[in-house]
């Protein structure tokens, strides 16, 4: 083998694309790139930035009179109403009253909902008997039942908690039994084949398998609970974010109205964040 031959191989292997493009002008061109796009990249700052820009635009619009004072109060006015709430300490009264109703109503509604959902999913007798009722009662706006709730549970905390409880109960039932129905049948058969008891299969296979669905059900039911808070506090509530919003509406105090709505919004974000945390904790196996 001559020295030339080895040289030639080396140069051939060393030749890169740009050489190729040079040496075969016109004949060689890069394959057109058609990939890219359709990929989600994270932009953490966009949402807060957009929010700030919108608020500034809104403030400017209000200050210049472009946005009528009747149509919408300026954000600074709403902020004023909010700072009044902090100054007088009323915010804690409203918040604690609402949180009490939310926590009790949501927890009880979720607890009963999960139990009933499991019962429907596991016992075909219960499914046949109860699930038509669930389907029939779910779409009824709980607000429509408020007058009845008042007779049944009184105008005190009872009817308020009940409104939230019922609103939370139905979506939880549906999420739970939907979740159980979707648990991989092979896993259950595996449990049976290893001689696991019925209770063990429910506790160690069915419930963890349905947990993702149950948790996303919680996300929805928590939002419903917040939505129903305003309805629940329509009747006989002295304090509470919902009562505050209703009073602001009745007095046409739009600055307080916006402040109240902002509180609900913050409440919603907080609850959403808490559920995300719970998901990360309980569903760490999903990566």
């Amino acid at each position: 083998m001559s020295l030339d031959a080895t040289n030639e191989i080396e140069t051939r292997t060393r030749r890169n694309t740009s050489d190729l493009q040079q040496s075969r002008k016109g004949l060689v061109k890069p394959v057109p790139f058609r990939g890219g796009g359709f990929v989600h990249t994270r932009h953490r700052l966009i949402a807060p930035l957009l929010f700030v820009v919108l608020v500034i635009l809104w403030e400017v619009g209000s200050q210049t009179g472009f946005i009528s004072n009747i149509a919408l109060p300026a954000p600074s006015e709403a902020a004023g109403a909010m700072s009044d709430l902090f100054e007088t300490g009323m915010i804690w009264k409203h918040l604690s009253a609402s949180l009490y109703r939310l926590v009790i109503g949501w927890s009880l509604g979720s607890l009963i909902g999960v139990f009933v959902g499991l019962a429907i999913a596991l016992f075909s007798l219960v499914r046949a008997g109860v699930s038509p009722f669930i389907s029939a009662l779910f779409p009824i706006p709980k607000i429509a039942l408020l007058p009845l709730f008042i007779i049944w549970f009184g105008i005190g905390e009872g009817s308020k908690v009940a409104t939230i409880l019922f609103g939370v109960f139905f979506p939880t039932v549906i999420a739970t039994y939907g979740g159980v129905d979707n648990v991989d049948r092979n896993l259950i058969r595996m449990g049976q084949s290893f001689g696991l008891s019925w209770m063990s299969i429910v506790r160690k296979i069915i419930i963890p398998g349905a947990l993702p669905a149950i948790l996303s059900g919680f996300r929805i039911s928590a939002s419903i609970a917040i939505i129903l808070l305003v309805a629940a506090e329509m009747i006989g509530a002295e304090y509470g974010i919902g009562a505050y919003i209703l009073m602001a509406g009745a007095l046409f105090a739009t600055d307080q109205l916006i402040a109240g709505v902002a509180m609900l919004s913050v409440l919603g974000l907080t609850v959403g964040w808490l559920i995300s945390r719970a998901e990360r904790l309980l569903l760490s196996w999903r990566a």
């Binding site: 595996m190 398998g209 196996w285 999903r286």
Partner: peptide, 21 residues
């Protein structure tokens, strides 16, 4: 299809079938 519980570690999947016995 292996039928492993995705919410249990390797060890947990084995201990699952021992716990009941």
């Amino acid at each position: 299809d292996f039928a492993l519980l995705p919410w249990r570690t390797v060890e947990g999947n084995i201990s699952l079938v021992l716990e009941d016995h």
